[in-house]
């Protein structure tokens, strides 16, 4: 019998490939990935078009995030829920590869599709608005835009474990959906929220990354008083904690589901 040796990069790439194929094979994804962002973008644009270019930019950043974050944060979780529904969770967990690498691949695909959604918003509003948008540092903006997605993905990686843990993960998803969106400052700056929300917000890497993104995008923006560099370091630090925790979280969750025996439930 031939010897087989599982490899994490191969598992990761296999997951990326399958996620892309499933994404393309299911046309319903066109709505959250491209049409919804355009609707959000136009709604924000119409609300703020008379308030000056800076506010328009602020608003479309919020709309762009609205279209991206859900896709990135919960896309992989949703796909894991699909694994339960299709009954593919059992054969996947019976392979020698940790499920973490499968989810990681899905997260990357969802982050990229989320990025496309955000860029669609930006392109549509730039085209519709007659004046150039006053991006303070365009290159940094693009890089930070992608970085925000990476921070979202790091949280999504950990949250997706809930979908492996229980078939009721959709409940948690629905419960946390808008709470997460608001508390990380996707739509409003965190400093506008009640003080008690700040410690929770600061535990989430996207909070820091979004603030850094606004520094790079908006002229005269003053979010957290500690400035851009600390924002960036905060995002990196919290993100690393999430990434480091993911391995342990998945190991524990896999042990739990094998003990409880609920893999086939959906």
């Amino acid at each position: 019998m031939g010897k087989v040796e599982p490899s994490r990069p191969r598992a990761f790439l296999a997951s990326v490939r399958l996620s892309l194929l499933l994404f393309l094979a299911d046309p319903q994804w066109v709505i959250p990935a491209t049409i919804a962002p355009v609707i959000f973008g136009f709604a924000a644009f119409e609300l703020y078009r008379g308030s000056g270019a800076t506010l328009v930019l602020y608003a479309i950043l919020g709309a762009g995030m609205m279209s991206m974050w859900g896709q990135t944060l919960y896309g992989a979780g949703w796909a894991t829920g699909q694994d339960r529904e299709l009954g593919t969770l059992e054969p996947t967990l019976s392979t020698p590869t940790s499920y973490l690498w499968v989810v990681f691949g899905r997260i990357v695909v969802n982050a990229v599709t989320g990025l496309v959604g955000g860029l669609v918003v930006f392109a549509v509003v730039s085209f519709a608005y007659p004046h150039p948008l006053p991006l303070r540092a365009p290159l940094e903006f693009v890089l930070l835009f992608a970085f925000v997605l990476v921070t979202l993905a790091s949280v999504g990686l950990v949250l997706s474990a809930v979908y492996v843990y229980t078939r009721y993960a959709g409940f948690i998803n629905n419960f946390g959906e808008f709470g997460f969106y608001i508390i990380t400052g996707s739509m409003f700056p965190v400093v506008l929220l009640p003080f008690w929300t700040s410690p929770i917000a600061l535990l989430l890497p996207p909070t820091w990354a979004l603030d850094a993104l606004r520094y790079a995008a908006l002229p005269g923006y003053t979010g957290f008083s500690w400035g851009f560099t600390v924002d960036l370091l905060g995002a990196l630090g919290t993100m690393l904690v999430y990434l480091a925790a993911a391995g342990s979280v998945y190991h524990r969750v896999e042990q739990h589901v094998l003990t409880v025996g609920n893999l086939q439930e959906y």
Partner: peptide, 12 residues
Amino acid sequence: ENLRYFADLYGI
């Protein structure tokens, strides 16, 4: 494609 995916997870 189903087989390709699982072949990679098994490290064939």
